[in-house]
C-alpha cells in the first residue's frame, strides 16, 4: 500500500512453539536510517522476532522483505542474511572468549568470507585503521590485546557492538544492550547507539525505560505484546497509552 521504500518490512508474521504463539500476525516496517526501540513484557516475542529476521528460526506464515522488497529474507540462511548487511548482537554477550579483542574484530571485518581468503588474505592497513577507530569508539583501545573472556560484562557488550560496526552492517539488531550494566555504562551505551544513529539503521530491544527514554528522544517506539504490535509512537505517547499501561508498564510499576 505504502509507496515509501522500507528497509525491512514484516507482514503477517506468525510463529508458534508447541502451540504457544510467540509471534502472532506481526506487522513491522522500518525505514532506512531509523533508530527504533522495541519494548514489551517478557514473552512478548521480541527475541523471537530477531530470530526470524536473522534466519535462526523460520516463521509459520508471513513475509519478511529486505531493502524495499528486493530480497526475501525467508529464503536465505543465517550467513546469507548477514551478508546482506544485517548484524545482530545477542542478549547475552556472545564474543569469542579465547580470542583477543582485536582478533574478535578481525573476524567481524567486512570482506570475503571464503576459506581461501581466510588462509591467504592479509589484513590491509585500511582495515587496521578501521579496527583502531572501532576500538576507540567502543572504548576498548587499552584492552586490544586482552582475551575477550577476561573483559567485564559491560565491555563484552560493547565489543559485540564493535563487531557489528566492523561488519559495516546496514541494520544493527541490538538485543538488550544494557542488560547487566551499571547506570553509568548504560548511559554510555545509549550515547554510543545515538552516535551511530543515521549512519546505520538500528533496532534496539530493551526493558530499561530510562534507557529507552534516553535513546528514543521522540523517535518511534514499538510495543510488542503477545507477539503482536500493540502500539507505535513516541515514547511519551506510548507510555500514556492505556493498553500499554495495562499490559506492560502498569504491571511493571506494580511489581516495582
Amino acid at each position: 500500500m505504502s509507496q515509501k521504500p522500507f528497509l525491512l518490512a514484516a507482514e503477517g508474521l506468525s510463529k508458534s512453539f508447541d502451540g504457544f504463539k510467540a509471534i502472532n500476525d506481526l506487522n513491522f516496517y522500518l525505514d532506512e536510517g531509523e533508530l527504533r526501540t522495541v519494548i514489551g513484557p517478557n514473552g512478548a516475542g521480541k527475541t523471537t522476532f530477531l530470530d526470524l529476521i536473522t534466519g535462526r528460526t523460520q516463521p509459520d506464515e508471513g513475509s519478511l522483505m529486505w531493502d524495499d522488497g528486493k530480497h526475501d529474507l525467508l529464503r536465505l540462511n543465517e550467513y546469507e542474511i548477514y551478508r546482506h548487511g544485517i548484524g545482530r548482537k545477542f542478549q547475552t554477550p556472545t564474543v569469542y572468549n579465547d580470542h583477543t579483542v582485536t582478533e574478535n574484530l578481525i573476524l567481524s571485518l567486512a570482506g570475503s568470507r571464503s576459506i581461501w581468503h581466510s588462509l591467504f588474505g592479509k589484513i590491509t592497513s585500511t582495515q587496521r585503521d578501521r579496527i583502531a577507530e572501532i576500538l576507540t569508539t567502543i572504548k576498548l583501545a587499552e584492552h586490544a590485546n586482552r582475551k575477550a573472556g577476561a573483559l567485564a560484562h559491560g565491555q563484552k557488550q560493547w565489543l559485540e557492538i564493535g563487531m557489528l560496526l566492523a561488519q559495516e552492517a546496514r541494520l544493527l539488531l541490538v538485543d538488550e544492550p544494557a542488560a547487566g550494566m551499571t547506570d553509568e555504562e548504560t548511559y554510555r551505551t545509549g550515547e554510543l547507539l545515538l552516535s551511530l544513529a543515521g549512519k546505520h539503521t538500528i533496532v534496539v530491544i530493551e526493558h530499561d525505560m530510562t534507557f529507552v527514554r534516553q535513546i528514543s528522544q521522540g523517535r518511534k517506539v514499538t510495543v510488542l505484546h503477545q507477539g503482536h504490535v500493540l502500539c507505535e509512537g513516541p515514547v511519551d505517547r506510548v507510555q500514556s497509552d492505556e493498553r500499554v499501561i495495562e499490559v506492560y508498564l502498569g504491571r511493571k510499576s506494580k511489581a516495582a
Partner: peptide, 30 residues
C-alpha cells in the same frame, strides 16, 4: 594453518559457532 585467520575461525567455531554463523561465515564449509 592454526595461526592464519582460518585458525581464528576454527577456534571461534569451537567456542561459539552461532556467533561465527551470524558473522557471515558458512561454518559448515569451514
Amino acid at each position: 594453518l592454526t595461526h592464519s585467520r582460518f585458525g581464528l575461525i576454527q577456534r571461534a567455531i569451537r567456542d561459539s559457532e552461532n556467533r561465527v554463523l551470524f558473522s557471515g561465515y558458512a561454518t559448515a564449509n569451514f
